[in-house]
Nucleic acid binder design. Sequence first.
RNA 1: CGGGGUGUAGCGCAGCCUGGUAGCGCAACUGCUUUGGGAGCAGUGGGUCGGGGGUUCGAAUCCCUCCACCCCGACCA
Length: 571
Amino acid sequence: MKTSKFHIMTTRETPADAEIASHQLMLRSGMIRKLTAGIYSWSPLGWRVLKKVEQIVREEMDRAGYLEMLMPAVQPAELWKETGRWEDFGGQLLKILDRAGREYVFGPTHEEVITDLARNELRSYKQLPVTFYQIQTKFRDEIRPRFGVMRAREFLMKDAYSFHIDEASLDQTYWEMYEVYSRIFERAGLMFRAVRADSGAIGGSQSHEFHVLAESGEDLIAFSTDSEFAANVELAEAVAPAGATPPAKEDLLLVDTPDAHTINDLVEQFGLPVEKTVKTLIVEAAEESGSGFVALLVRGDHVLNEFKAARLPQVATPIRFATEDEIHAATGAGPGSLGPVGLKIPAVVDRTVAAMSDFAAGANQDGKHYFGVNWGRDTELPEQADLRNVTEGDPSPDGEGTLQLARGIEVGHIFQLGTKYSESMNAVVLGEDGKSHVMPMGCYGIGVSRIVAAAIEQNHDEKGICWPDPIAPFQVAILPMNARKSHRVREAAELLYADLQAAGVEVLLDDRNVRPGVMFNDMELIGIPHRVVIGERGLDEGVLEYRKRTDTENGEIPLEGAVEALLERLG
RNA sequence: CGGGGUGUAGCGCAGCCUGGUAGCGCAACUGCUUUGGGAGCAGUGGGUCGGGGGUUCGAAUCCCUCCACCCCGACCA
């Protein structure tokens, strides 16, 4: 491709409403253009990248023996009413009417359609297991679309669905899919982690999310230094401290702390180590507990995990923090002066807190704290539970290694659905035993368009995008210097261009009559991984200038055999 | 859905408070010069000032209303 024939639409200025790097760079490089909130056009340049990702996904799915198909984007409401999701899916479901006033949805996902197909087509266990997939535009009416195609309303997704005679078969395909997904992200050249996700209300089902690691990720994940363990921070267990609680060394001391209303104040004003402080949070109690409010205690530098807290039988669901007035009424003190000693309401302490000694906490009197608090001696140790978010350095819940934290962008999700849809839609086959069996199902999604944005988040610098080779729109950019004046340069560029194309390389020749700086900046912004500069100077010496996008220094390759030399570098 | 903000040339913005015939930078187009890191000079084109209504001799500017977009939150997991 030549730039003169390929619509390059780079911009120097950053659009005002783009916040994160990938969004800015996709707009500046001209990969996408916004049509309306959360809905984007993909330019010829962007489309090349999207197709690359799509093709990697397709090849790996095909290789695993999964069957590609295409389902309708527009689906009748009846199917969604059958599974109850017409109501349950919520506002993200885009409902549309046809001219006769019949109700439809624009598919945000396709469990209903595929299950309908399966119940009509699948009759015998001999046809199982089978996995169908499609790569298709989905629409979810996000409450707040943002970050460009990262969280768009319309997006490209690969969704797959598997059908089985029993749970064991489902489990087998599930783990197979886990490997397929891992290969896909590896092939795309991305750093990723498979993260165990919440099995949640559905219970017992396996579920993993695949996250591309990037600082701007919306999810915080914890993973072990030494094992495969990885989990969303909100779901990772904070392991109870090993070893016995250190013995008390200090006496209980009531201290005037008129200006200390937060843990920070306490640490700054009294020079206490934050690990020796405890904070007390008051939430509404479950009705049957009859106490009105419950205190939750975590170490000063720890963060209460609302998921974990909400699961406590003592705590009302949904979880609600007490107001300042309620706290006063329940404890006799303000929120900045609460603690376990002399507390009038029931409390639950984090397991880390339970193992602390000689710590500081509010005295339940305004403007006073106790220092040197010890369990048992100064107050009864309340019930213990895992209440906090894990932090970096915590032991891994699986006992191997310690936890590290990283931000991730969810680009894939695999799930053992079980019979949720097959049961409500009566998708059954005859088994070997001659009886009807409801088919357990799995579903497996990959956000194809999101991967493009995630890849940029993970691979960019101050000049622009740094595509991993496998998903770059072009592999090589040829920049002729002053081609207008130099027929030698022009000819050398055309020759190399033709030779690389003949060798099957995707190459972009910048034949625009623009200054070199423009070419350099555009090609770096667009992120083409390999750059060849052709100039009179080099031709005199029989060399071409070569530079990898992520390198900081220029290299040279001999004009003689340049194609072969380049092919080697493309890997 | 609640709160906040913004809509003026393709992009980024000023003008609005204090009403008087719409401007700057970048981009685009033409010509000449220039060509190893976003060129210089000269010239040109481009605007329903988000839409509708009102006040006024006169509205980008003031008032009402609708719409769109952005940010924070809630929701969702």
